[in-house]
Design a protein around this nucleic acid. Structure first.
Lengths: 196, 196
DNA sequence: CTAATATTTGAACGATGGTTCAAGTTTTGA
DNA sequence: TCAAAACTTGAACCATCGTTCAAATATTAG
């Protein structure tokens, strides 16, 4: 059955994502992915053409999710501050959540040039969407004027970095981190008059 | 002569750092380091016990530099905002400067457990120093109250991330990026009253 | 039940990358 | 000047990792 095959592929991708998250990209080989997915190494090649394809699908899954969230934020109502806050918070969730969390899109170097292109294009589109929110907020006067591109990269760096230090089971939940972080990042954008 | 040997080791380390920066950690092997340093692969083992040691020294050089800067910031005069700004700006310079810039400390996973410990300890000490500045500024009322630890990680994420996107020869200089970034990051800390 | 098809395996292949080493070359010190 | 020490090399060794493949097993269709 086609359905069965498709489902199995997804299972394997999820297992691979788990392995990548647990062991790191460079330390995760076909053998580790196979073990995490409960099948033999050779069997992986029945479902995928190779490691590159597995990694590619993992990265696209993640970046597609981010892109969808960015599109939602772009079309949403409310202040730019609110929309940016929820987008950044969601970004953190996308990476850290137990079930589907992935940091795959951060390690594009693991892909051969040819496959990289698509992921990078989507990643750029996401960054572009965030920057547009920042720039629009500046133009509208909601945010202080500044280098929207640079600030966007700063924000993305901060949220992506959570993958490096956040540990599940620690004192603070993903939601707490996500909200507090988004709050700080947007606070640096707001037009303000310094307190005495 | 001992002096000569010592100098050669430093030359090799600098060459290795260049190679790491140019090719990325995973794509840089002993053969690449050897070529960049103008000697044969086997000869590297006369100066170092192996790749791990080279990487270890590279990372320690970087993190030692950061630690020294943090110590200076801790002991300096001026507002916490000013001191944090210059520290973050210097951090960016440490990573991106043409001559000695290194992103080695970002890839600790490349080291075996045993060697990792020391680097991680120093990296934590650096983070601790930054957090102390943030916390002190909060306590003094210069900064808004908040989760000093989280904010510190956000700042470090943003500055470390520059290594991923900054390209030499682009429109903006390292100094411009460093200053603008530091400015944004500290602005998010300041006690402010929202503008109407 | 049986043949065709889909799935799975375990061993082996080839390339890559860290490392070793015996043999050379250069430098040093008396 | 000459022997000992310091340095350098290139080839080969070995482990790892992505990958292939022929054979075995499970599933499906008639």
């Amino acid at each position: 059955m086609q359905r069965k095959n498709e489902a199995r592929r997804l299972d394997i991708l999820r297992a691979a994502a788990r392995a990548f998250r647990r062991l790191g990209l460079s330390a995760t080989g076909m053998r580790e992915i196979a073990e995490e997915a409960d099948l033999s190494p050779g069997n992986l090649y029945y479902y995928f053409t190779g490691k590159d394809e597995i990694l590619l699908y993992c990265q696209e899954r993640t970046v597609d999710r981010l892109l969808a969230e960015a599109a939602r934020a772009s079309g949403a109502r409310g202040t730019y501050a609110d929309r940016l806050r929820t987008l950044m918070s969601t970004h953190v969730h996308c990476m850290l959540d137990d079930l589907e969390g992935t940091t795959a899109h951060l390690e594009v170097e693991g892909l051969p040039e040819r496959m990289r292109r698509g992921v990078i294009a989507k990643r750029d589109a996401y960054e572009h969407a965030v920057r547009d929110l920042v720039a629009a907020g500046m133009k509208r006067g909601e945010f202080a004027k500044g280098d929207a591109s640079l600030v966007t990269r700063a924000m993305l760096g901060a949220v992506n970095w959570t993958a490096r230090w956040y540990r599940h089971g620690g004192p603070q939940s993903v939601a707490e981190v996500a909200d507090a972080l988004a709050d700080y990042l947007v606070r640096g954008l707001l037009r303000t008059t310094a307190a005495k």
